[in-house]
Design a protein around this nucleic acid. Sequence first.
DNA 1: AACAGGAGTTAGTCAAGACTAATTTTCTTT
DNA 2: AAAGAAAATTAGTCTTGACTAACTCCTGTT
Lengths: 230, 230
Amino acid sequence: MSEDPVAAAPATITPAMQDYLKAIFRLGETGPVATHRLAEELGVTAPSATNMAKRLHEVGLLTHEPYHGVQLTLKGRQAALDVVRRHRLLETYLAEAVGLGWDEVHDEAERLEHHLSERLEARIDSLLGFPATDPHGDPIPRDGANLAPGPTLLQMPAGSEGTVSRVSDRDPEQLRYLRDLGIIPGARITVIEHLPFEGPVRVRVLPPGEEPGQEYVLGRVLAGVVRLAS
Amino acid sequence: MSEDPVAAAPATITPAMQDYLKAIFRLGETGPVATHRLAEELGVTAPSATNMAKRLHEVGLLTHEPYHGVQLTLKGRQAALDVVRRHRLLETYLAEAVGLGWDEVHDEAERLEHHLSERLEARIDSLLGFPATDPHGDPIPRDGANLAPGPTLLQMPAGSEGTVSRVSDRDPEQLRYLRDLGIIPGARITVIEHLPFEGPVRVRVLPPGEEPGQEYVLGRVLAGVVRLAS
DNA sequence: AACAGGAGTTAGTCAAGACTAATTTTCTTT
DNA sequence: AAAGAAAATTAGTCTTGACTAACTCCTGTT
């Protein structure tokens, strides 16, 4: 009897968890994040980071490959975006409506971001006129969609599953090829494994409507062009 | 070496401690507070309350006479007033500046009150023009000064008339109901009669600005929650 | 190919704060 | 004055999230 690898929704994401997710999001734009970098970023010891990594892995917010760093799952990425959104919205509000200095807002937002209800978040957003960026010019994520175009298959750890959101439209040849494989927006896709030495990616594809699902191996160029919904 | 009986300043007062102090302050206007009342108020079990009482005693925020309840020390009372002040200031701000409804502000303030920096507290106070009372009519403590609450409708004899000074802010349902009746701070109210056998109370209400006045019958719970200016 | 040193993990501890179960005090009622 | 009920406490457990100490894995040198 082992844990479900496709872990259920975490009942609640504690403030500490939110801080870790946010830090991983910030550090992890390009690949896995080493636990010691995480520890350093958060000002905790290395074992604390490992420990939290294990727990976040268990609730399915990230994947933790022992000795090789952590990577957010789609769910984890969404949760991180939620926190970043609240943080930047608060910074904007504190600067514009409350009149705090732009050097003061970060610390205040850091304390409040974990305790903002959805109702209050929405109200502040609307009072500010749905701003696109915070006072430092950083974009404020909205609908989980805007900030990032969504990760490519290359960036997703083995085992993760998601829905294809878009496919680069540059090369008609590529597009036709991918369409023949059923890799089109809306298709469900599972990353089975990354083959070693910068190798290709094995995936299982479930085109919308079709059932059995089919396995393919995609070269890195192709895998880097397919993005999942974030 | 043992603990100093005249305990030193507690390094930090945790959010949980703040909630206990606030509840004791609210319940303890007249003498010691029984731990089971405290537990009930906070929605925890009796042992949890006893346990926290012991810890707060150790850091000198209250005195705990085993089997005979707790009482705030001066330091504890001051800490409680700080929390109450932040709570009521936040309620006022959320209602006046953010535009939340008077039945919504309590819950939001409850979440944020533990994470308000002194800087932000002072800024909000000044933005509001140093208000004396919150939207429910409760006084906002300042410099540790506090005020006696007026009598409730239950305590007023038939025939007496007065102005509503404050309404308990605990239950949004109650608040909406009372507001619909025009029972808000500033309304004129006359107690017509107390119905027999612990019965409800008949009152006439004159909301501020409105004229004719209207008669209602209030259950004892509701009547016990509406206070008149003293 | 061995190995040093750094990164990562395991094991064990601690404090806050909640819980249940069992026990003790105090109060009320006959 | 004794019995029961109600209130309070003790004892022991659990979870979260941090820590130190000790061990293991990985990698870049020689």
